[in-house]
Nucleic acid binder design. Structure first.
Lengths: 197, 197
DNA sequence: GCATGGTGAGTGAGTGTTCGCTCGCTCGCC
DNA sequence: GGCGAGCGAGCGAACACTCACTCACCATGC
């Protein structure tokens, strides 16, 4: 079956199974058998909807992409400063939420494997690009409104996203306690430093 | 053979083969056959020195750890500000150096797989912990010398390392051109903001 | 000077297992 | 009775790892 004609409900169900399996086993140890074990289908049942394991992962990524985009879109904070803080709060995964941590770490694993897997590269690129744009837009608004100093929106966005992704990819993945709180404070201080006096 | 009694020359040679194979294929697609192909030994020859694939990867990590520690130690810049800039320069891998980029991306892949592989966790933890300490020491010196504002050394170190690791794990891995330069500038501006007026 | 036997270093050819994926079939429903 | 949905069984390939063996080298005894 072509990937883009999978019924939405089935796509959501399979994406969810991929998500659970990724969080539990990581990408390098992900197998279709493990995905099936997390779903309510058999291994062969997954292949009824998707032609390959990679396509199932793409389904998960597209679902995550939608979810993240919606979450960022739903921020109802007012003003660039509060909005930027809200975005950071979303991107800096709580170490005490194992489910969220597992998924986000797995996405970092997918990201760092992207150079070797063409199929996964595109959806990952879209997701990161979008997040980058959301942050840059907020910063740009802040500069135009005179809330932020005259910083470069793209550079600031890259800095913030790097910091949050990097935190997930090393401190969260290694279970380094305390680093999250340290970082949260420094990131908050960084946002302070963006404000005009 | 116990891993800690492998002759140094053999360890270096095998670590090097693992490094090359990781850079080319990534961790998720790393096989002992590919490591052997990058070395001058057969697959069975690798097992003469190491009992498992994971031990070979640990050998690579220990070698990298030594190399990074030595590189950070050899910084001869003077004063906390210049030293901090030098560290960032080392950690922010150049996107035009494919070999260095490949290895660093692979280490990010290992990091984000760490929750699922106990064997790799320890050496990775040591490596990140050490880097974190090096940065925190520089910041602490800077604060004591009155060069930096009274920032938290640990938090600042976590912020800087997160940013550089994160850049490697998403922008470098996805080949997002320009992000590196944007980030370099923002990171430099951040260091400016740490300085006392 | 030279046969003998032990040893470290290494390999070609496998081992059993697991992988991604397919096929022939069944079942329930219009 | 035809058809969409799904599964048990199993395919070939690839995987991590092992084993029986070779070969160069060296010490020893004669």
């Amino acid at each position: 079956m072509p990937a883009d004609s999978v019924p939405p409900e089935q796509k959501a169900q399979i994406a969810n199974a991929v998500r659970a399996a990724l969080a539990t086993h990581g990408y390098a140890r992900l197998t279709t058998k493990k995905v099936a074990a997390e779903s309510e289908k058999s291994e062969a049942g997954l292949y009824y909807y998707y032609d390959s394991k990679d396509e199932m992962i793409v389904a998960f990524l597209e679902t995550s992409e939608d979810y993240l985009a919606r979450t960022l879109d739903e921020i109802d904070a007012e003003g660039p400063e509060e909005r930027l803080r809200a975005v950071c709060d979303i991107l800096l995964v709580d170490e005490d939420d194992p489910a969220a941590a597992g998924v986000n770490i797995a996405v970092m694993e997918l990201l760092s494997h992207a150079p070797h897997n063409e199929t996964l590269r595109e959806p990952l690129l879209r997701m990161e690009r979008h997040t980058l744009d959301v942050i840059a837009d907020i910063v740009r608004d802040g500069v135009e409104q005179g809330v932020f100093r005259e910083v470069d929106p793209e550079g600031t966005a890259a800095f913030v996203l790097s910091a949050t992704d990097g935190y997930t990819g090393f401190a969260l993945a290694l279970g380094m306690e305390g680093v999250g709180d340290d970082l949260r404070e420094s990131l908050s201080a960084y946002i302070d430093s963006l404000l005009v006096e």
